[in-house]
């Protein structure tokens, strides 16, 4: 049986850990609120953009190279993870899905190219000696639009010079605070978005628009922009999910620490009781011996 002092030391250690996890949970909650707000702010922009593109492309798929489906040879997967850990299964879920997708493609004899965002994905693939085409780290926390533009430019450039024929993105989609879902979504070539139903969208799909300067010119500016927007959106979702996952993980850790402290305290009290009883027995024994 552990000595009193050992148990006391463990109780202290666990309660220190508990304080840390509690603080981390609070920080994650604050960051989550911020990330969620940015996500919500972004939504109307992304929706409007989709509706303009829907009006522009009008179902035709060959107006712009970014809309054209080439024969698949090389497929790129953009993997979004976090830079830091301690967020439950957040990263391993994404990486598992990425691994599954990649081996699926390899089985069909496609060349696969990988780009990663976040230190966790980079380290994961590096450990497995998998070559990455590009990597971006240090984005989380202070995500700025110019970083997103760099990623989008890189992808578009490689798509245009036919180094890659198709691009997918895998990331954690934010559902609710307690549930995040890993999704694999196609980024390039873009399927012309369905125009959204309801009064909010562009007038009707049948409306004939005049274009200035020209349909082609507008599309060639708008489509790269839309890729930026989609990546930005995915990054925001991923970030909100990361904080949500961290919050849940830290809450569980705090709860576990509480349980551990309870059981250790019980053990401590039992041990204390036992030592007092032992001492009493000694004293009583001694008195009895003196009497005799």
């Amino acid at each position: 049986m552990a000595t009193l002092r050992d148990i006391k030391r463990r109780i202290n250690a666990v309660s220190n850990t508990k304080q840390i996890t509690k603080a981390m949970k609070m920080v994650a909650a604050a960051k989550l609120r911020k990330a969620q707000a940015r996500m919500i702010q972004m939504r109307p922009y992304a929706e409007k953009m989709n509706s303009v593109i829907a009006a522009l492309s009008g179902g035709e798929g060959d107006l712009h190279p970014l809309l054209v489906q080439r024969p698949r040879r090389t497929i790129e997967l953009l993997v979004l993870t976090s830079d830091r850990g301690l967020c439950g299964a957040f990263n391993s879920n994404v990486l598992k899905e990425a691994e599954r997708t990649i081996s699926g493609w390899k089985a069909e004899n496609f060349r696969v190219s990988i780009s990663v965002v976040g230190r966790k994905a980079r380290d994961y693939f590096k450990r497995r000696k998998v070559e990455m085409r590009n990597e971006w780290t240090g984005l989380s926390g202070k995500l700025v639009y110019s970083d997103v533009r760099r990623i989008a430019e890189d992808i578009i450039e490689n798509y245009m010079n036919e180094a890659i024929d198709e691009v997918f993105i895998v990331y954690n989609q934010f559902k609710t605070v307690i549930s995040q879902e890993v999704v694999v979504a196609q980024l390039v070539p873009m399927a012309p978005p369905e125009s959204e139903k309801g009064g909010e969208g562009p007038e009707e799909a049948s409306t004939v628009f005049i274009y200035e300067p020209s349909q082609q010119a507008i599309l060639s500016q708008l489509l790269p922009k839309n890729i930026e927007v989609q990546i930005y959106r995915a990054l925001l979702e991923s970030q909100a999910s990361e904080e949500a996952a961290r919050m849940t993980a830290m809450e569980n850790a705090t709860k576990n620490a509480d349980e551990m402290i309870d059981s250790l305290t019980l053990q401590y009290n039992k041990a204390r009781q036992a030592s007092i009883t032992a001492e009493l027995m000694d004293i009583v024994g001694g008195v009895e011996a003196l009497k005799g």
């Binding site: 303009v52 009006a55 007038e203 409306t207 004939v208 628009f209 005049i210 274009y211 200035e212 500016q221």
Partner: peptide, 12 residues
């Protein structure tokens, strides 16, 4: 310049 009842137009 845009006034109500403008013809549908998309421009940069």
């Amino acid at each position: 310049g845009i006034l109500p009842d403008h013809i549908p137009l998309i421009t940069t």
